[in-house]
Amino acid sequence: IRCIGVSNRDFVEGMSGGTWVDVVLEHGGCVTVMAQDKPTVDIELVTTTVSNMAEVRSYCYEASISDMASDSRCPTQGEAYLDKQSDTQYVCKRTLVDRGWGNGCGLFGKGSLVTCAKFTCSKKMTGKSIQPENLEYRIMLSVHGSQHSGMIVNDTGYETDENRAKVEVTPNSPRAEATLGGFGSLGLDCEPRTGLDFSDLYYLTMNNKHWLVHKEWFHDIPLPWHAGADTGTPHWNNKEALVEFKDAHAKRQTVVVLGSQEGAVHTALAGALEAEMDGAKGKLFSGHLKCRLKMDKLRLKGVSYSLCTAAFTFTKVPAETLHGTVTVEVQYAGTDGPCKIPVQMAVDMQTLTPVGRLITANPVITESTENSKMMLELDPPFGDSYIVIGVGDKKITHHWHRSGSTIGKAFEATVRGAKRMAVLGDTAWDFGSVGGVFNSLGKGIHQIFGAAFKSLFGGMSWFSQILIGTLLVWLGLNTKNGSISLTCLALGGVMIFLSTAVSA
């Protein structure tokens, strides 16, 4: 259960009878995928790494000078000259100064003066180019299975845990398959586009800190620079940016070097996208990844198990997540596992009318040892309800109150669905055939309105939902006002479609 501690969480529900669903994975976010007769899966884009970055340009932001020398000439005696002028490691300046009897010249006039100092770069920052084909995306998957609280967001041991898996995709191999043991396998067909235009970005490294910066900004930095990788004795261009020549006297000129420019660069980098280094690879934390999940090989585990009949206890007080759902960790005293956990939410304890829904599909106890633990997640209705676990006299209950409203949740879900469709863009549509167009249209309606429909009408039977949709269509056909007619027709059509397409 990876997503319960992530604030940016998206719930995606598969269409009834569908074998695939489109998701948008982004750094700092987590996606929970639910479908009829399929286990619930949490998917998170953990890291995006980039390798084989080529150094484009380096800037010196802290330097020192040494070996200063000057040469001067009297008027009419030609130009002052130093051998160091031809050495690229030196920074030199030529000027004219007033000369006369007082400073060793027989004539009054302008004399030539040249001053040089050896330039040494102490600290530099480097910009590297990123090729999209060198990106690698690491995705962690977790099935809502027989897990306890100690396994949440624990990325170790996934090789031997059938509840978890790690997959890596690249532009050259965008397809992967996550093996989930008894739950089958989940196929991923990803489109490795981060949403960032790397043709316009460089990877900047300064003092063990890293950013993504725009090329134009990078090339306009007014500091000494050299092109390409460091060859040991780089040729620094624009050395004068960190060196200041003071007022010249008759035979000498003082040279000083400016202080470190790291603070000024940090100020200019305010708002830039931060990154990290992992050995020789860069780690990015921006952008998104679009994936199509193929769920035809994914299956529920323990459908044929019998119900657990022994007593359950709450190991922890049920807690609310950031998303309005409830996490419950229970301990089973029996030894008759594997068995299914009898769990439901009810409005009252007399009729036990089921409300809400299970995020953890078909929760089971897989071990036959005593005191096995299991964590599950529920989506309670707004208002008061009861969490009921167990059967008969051994069942345990917990009162729950959820604040908020169904309308607010439906609106929030619609906005999130619209954002998801905007990110998917043209990849969500198939114009290759008439059937493809209608299929894409259905998927689009489901992406945007599916979660809201589930919130508003999830407790009704599909037949009642179709009746309401048919009534809206009838009202649309018999209303003389054009805008009201079109609105009723659209709402009725969407409702009829979703009542037959969205899983219960």
Rank of each mutant, 00 (worst) to 15 (best):
348 D>C: 00
209 K>G: 04
206 M>F: 04
124 K>F: 01
295 M>L: 12
259 G>T: 06
338 P>N: 06
168 E>L: 00
220 D>W: 12
38 K>E: 11
321 T>C: 11
501 A>K: 13
393 D>Q: 01
433 S>G: 00
23 V>W: 07
215 K>L: 00
175 R>N: 08
491 L>W: 12
3 C>K: 06
103 N>I: 05
57 R>V: 03
257 V>G: 03
353 T>K: 02
441 L>E: 07
410 A>F: 11
481 N>S: 15
369 T>F: 09
48 T>V: 14
21 V>G: 01
128 K>T: 11
161 D>L: 15
117 A>K: 08
166 K>D: 12
225 W>K: 06
459 G>A: 10
62 E>W: 09
247 D>C: 07
265 V>D: 12
368 S>I: 08
148 H>D: 11
84 K>S: 12
415 V>C: 10
404 G>F: 11
119 F>Y: 12
348 D>R: 00
345 M>Y: 04
16 S>I: 01
288 H>K: 05
296 D>L: 05
52 N>E: 03
498 L>T: 03
99 R>M: 11
54 A>H: 04
199 S>W: 02
477 L>R: 01
451 A>Q: 00
25 L>P: 00
116 C>A: 04
66 S>K: 14
348 D>V: 01
230 D>R: 14
304 S>E: 00
186 L>W: 08
300 L>Q: 06
418 A>R: 01
47 T>L: 13
302 G>K: 05
409 K>N: 00
317 V>G: 00
444 G>F: 07
328 V>Y: 09
36 Q>L: 02
396 I>N: 07
37 D>Y: 10
349 M>I: 11
60 C>S: 04
101 W>F: 06
71 D>S: 07
71 D>Y: 01
496 I>N: 12
127 G>D: 05
369 T>N: 15
340 K>I: 06
377 E>T: 03
228 G>E: 13
251 K>Q: 14
376 L>F: 04
41 V>T: 03
79 E>P: 12
441 L>I: 05
125 M>K: 09
457 F>W: 12
179 T>Q: 06
435 G>A: 15
23 V>L: 03
256 V>M: 02
84 K>M: 13
498 L>R: 02
237 N>R: 14
163 N>L: 01
445 I>Q: 10
245 F>H: 06
353 T>P: 00
416 R>E: 05
260 S>I: 01
22 D>K: 06
9 R>S: 05
107 L>A: 04
429 W>L: 06
482 G>A: 15
84 K>E: 07
63 A>I: 10
215 K>E: 11
2 R>E: 08
282 G>F: 08
464 S>W: 14
261 Q>S: 09
125 M>D: 07
75 P>W: 11
165 A>Q: 11
83 D>M: 05
498 L>W: 08
237 N>T: 02
477 L>G: 02
49 T>H: 01
225 W>I: 05
334 G>L: 01
417 G>L: 02
163 N>W: 06
184 G>W: 09
409 K>G: 00
184 G>H: 08
257 V>L: 13
361 A>Q: 06
267 T>L: 11
155 D>C: 01
43 I>G: 02
373 K>A: 13
233 T>F: 06
120 T>F: 01
322 L>E: 04
410 A>I: 11
55 E>I: 02
48 T>F: 08
310 A>H: 04
431 F>R: 03
22 D>A: 03
363 P>L: 11
452 A>S: 11
364 V>I: 15
153 V>D: 13
178 A>S: 11
253 Q>T: 05
53 M>R: 02
478 N>H: 14
203 Y>D: 13
219 H>F: 15
257 V>D: 04
430 D>M: 12
437 V>G: 00
367 E>L: 01
194 T>Y: 14
419 K>S: 03
128 K>R: 15
285 F>Q: 06
428 A>P: 07
339 C>M: 10
216 E>A: 04
224 P>S: 13
156 T>C: 03
160 T>Y: 02
454 K>G: 04
19 T>H: 04
139 I>P: 00
446 H>V: 12
342 P>M: 11
7 S>Y: 15
285 F>R: 01
133 E>W: 09
349 M>V: 14
223 L>W: 12
395 K>Q: 06
384 D>K: 12
502 V>M: 13
198 F>N: 05
55 E>C: 14
291 C>W: 03
351 T>C: 00
286 S>A: 12
106 G>P: 02
142 S>R: 00
361 A>T: 13
474 W>V: 09
341 I>F: 09
142 S>T: 14
393 D>N: 14
101 W>Y: 06
297 K>Y: 09
118 K>W: 02
499 S>P: 03
470 T>E: 00
133 E>M: 11
92 C>Y: 13
156 T>L: 02
378 L>W: 09
391 V>N: 10
311 A>Q: 14
121 C>M: 09
314 F>E: 03
405 S>R: 04
480 K>E: 12
461 S>I: 12
107 L>M: 08
195 G>H: 03
155 D>G: 11
471 L>E: 12
383 G>K: 11
119 F>E: 05
342 P>L: 10
365 I>V: 15
268 A>G: 03
354 P>A: 14
325 T>I: 08
23 V>S: 00
148 H>Y: 15
183 F>A: 06
275 A>M: 05
429 W>A: 02
78 G>W: 08
292 R>G: 00
168 E>Q: 03
150 G>N: 14
466 I>H: 07
140 M>C: 00
79 E>T: 11
201 L>Q: 13
67 D>W: 12
469 G>K: 07
310 A>I: 00
278 D>S: 15
151 M>D: 06
468 I>A: 14
145 G>V: 08
173 S>Q: 05
67 D>N: 14
250 A>Q: 07
3 C>W: 07
279 G>E: 14
382 F>D: 06
395 K>N: 03
376 L>H: 03
224 P>A: 06
327 T>M: 06
243 V>Q: 03
416 R>C: 04
73 R>V: 07
177 E>W: 12
454 K>L: 04
96 L>A: 02
